[in-house]
Design a protein around this nucleic acid. Structure first.
Lengths: 329, 329
DNA sequence: CTTGCAAACGGCACCGGTTCCTGATATACT
DNA sequence: AGTATATCAGGAACCGGTGCCGTTTGCAAG
């Protein structure tokens, strides 16, 4: 490998001169040209490690994601990627495979790699997380869940639940089925649901059945095959678009027609909701923007600016084909 | 930041002793305990850069992907991630956004970052790629496309085309519509199609219409709205599952029934083919395995083992609901 | 009580850069 | 011509580790 020393020798100058050439300037035109030529000949590129070592700066950003094969994750990543690029950060993306151990491990690894900050797409936040993060003492940002003492950036999940609730009531529905996920996930399992339920409380005559499933499409599908024939709901609210897609599939296999037999909606704004038939009403979350904003925020943190502990991004209700007015039959 | 020197001072030993403690051994139990204690107190972690600098080894692997929001890409990434982890590599994933400039740029960046090898999910391979790669002179592996002089790992696209061809002929179909993509993509645009067409040639009475679209679901959908009413085909072969999903959506909107009105199949084995109705027959590609194998291969390359220039992975035909026998009506 | 040997440890050079400090040279000014 | 000043270049220290090499120490064998 060719180093700054080689260049210096070949050019007959000191390596400090070459370094100056590479950075500030203050080099005479002659030497500049000499060095220029030799660098081109040899194809020399400075060693990043040596640089980082001296500069105590790596320009690297760590990202921890729970899984790779999720469209929301990927949209967030897209946003992160774009903005990181803009701000001159190199990304190290690590996958925790939805595994607590590996999440903690990844925090460690990234800290050791001396990334300047870490963005983590959070699922649940445990005391172990908090401890480890405090110990690592570098800028840290949770996405998707809030953590009291650590910076976070979230969607307005409560608000999203409220939006769906108001919309569905507005359509005249009074009998609902909420297909939720476990409460270990604060944002999806609790906030979203609560926003919805709180809204329904305003309308005395409304009734809600509740079924719990997981984030897995397959499991949701199998449960739906069972609960669809049993429910009396005219509107089914699914806690995620993934679940909604699964329920739709089960419905069409059982011979139900959506929205004629019942309305259906999800949360998330996944692309999938647009290419199934019927397209599914959803509250779209600005995942990409979340990614973008998160990098901007961690950049501020890295540069020791003060930023609010918690940032929230709004959502938009997207009405599609899977929902319609309820008419007494 | 706490360094090895701090530890050495606090422990009253030379830093070389601390280094030994961290690496080989040959440290007395007493000093070991002393150092141990101090490291725990201070939360010291060795600086990766200093290490890499000295060791001339980074344990980092560069991955260049064309886009993040693609399920095939993500499956490949999953495989890469898992195996990289196993073999002790840290991943740097860069996104080229399907942009030639940025692809080249990313190769540069990764080379500068001194990754030990680069895996690139290829689209088209230009002379510029080849030049840059040769210049960078580090282990390089193309995934998904073959490049004569550079190591690559591909799917058997020609074979896949053949499989669909034989399957469709076997069902009795004779009139086909092939919905393809441009030929700049060697694997998908040419090989896949050729495998299919070559197979049909064996059956004299067969006829094929051809329509070209792009990888975009939206565009395929719009084209399908037009060509579906015009075609006389009883079997539609789509060059990707994405396109197949789009065509299916268009079909169901136009009131066609699949597979009653015509059969439909894709390529790729995307998850999406399983949760639309009807589920779509496809040739499934072992994307995840491709990712795994690719890391194993580049690991061999990094360790200067000899490996074949080209590796191919087989595919499996997955018959689902969207295809059925053709019966003269 | 030597001698021999291995384990334990300290010193130092080195990895490839950056930067401060100093000295040399050229240029400008009086 | 002599001096002040700016520009350019070299030397050396430093970043935080690793690893070779040589010295010291402890212990068993002779």
């Amino acid at each position: 490998m060719v180093t700054i020393n080689d260049i210096a020798k070949k050019a007959g100058v000191a390596k400090s001169t070459v370094s100056r050439y590479l950075n500030n300037g203050s080099v005479s035109t002659q030497t500049r040209e000499k060095i220029d030529k030799i660098i081109k000949e040899t194809g020399y590129t400075p060693n990043t490690f040596a640089r980082s070592l001296k500069a105590q700066k790596t320009n690297m950003l760590g990202v921890i994601i729970p899984r790779l094969n999720s469209s929301s994750t990927n949209e967030v990543l897209e946003g992160i990627d774009a903005t990181a690029r803009e701000l001159g950060y190199q990304l190290i993306i690590t996958n925790s495979d939805q595994n607590l151990e590996r999440e903690l491990e990844n925090i460690q690894t990234l800290a050791i790699q001396k990334v300047e900050g870490i963005i983590m797409l959070a699922r649940q936040i445990t005391k172990q997380h908090i401890d480890l993060i405090n110990q690592a003492s570098l800028p840290f940002l949770f996405i998707g869940q809030k953590a009291g003492t650590i910076h976070s950036m979230i969607h307005q999940d409560y608000e999203a639940g409220k939006q769906i609730g108001e919309y569905a009531l507005g359509l005249g529905h009074r009998h609902f089925l909420y297909v939720g996920v476990p409460e270990y996930d604060q944002a999806v399992g609790i906030d979203r649901k609560k926003g919805f339920l709180d809204t329904l409380k305003k309308e005395k005559s409304s009734e809600v059945e509740y079924i719990e499933t997981t984030f897995s499409r397959t499991i949701a599908y199998e449960k739906a095959l069972k609960f669809l024939p049993e429910t009396k709901a005219t509107y089914i609210v699914c806690a995620t678009d993934n679940i909604a897609v699964a329920v739709l599939k089960a419905a069409s296999e059982l011979g139900y027609r959506v929205p004629e037999d019942f309305s259906l909606s999800g949360f998330g704004g996944y692309e999938a909701t647009s290419y199934v038939t019927p397209t599914i009403t959803t509250v779209s979350y600005p995942y990409k923007r979340l990614g973008e904003e998160s990098v901007k925020k961690i950049d501020l943190l890295i540069n020791k600016k003060t930023v609010p502990m918690l940032s929230e991004l709004g959502n938009v209700l997207e009405v599609k084909e899977s929902t319609k007015e309820y008419k007494e039959s």
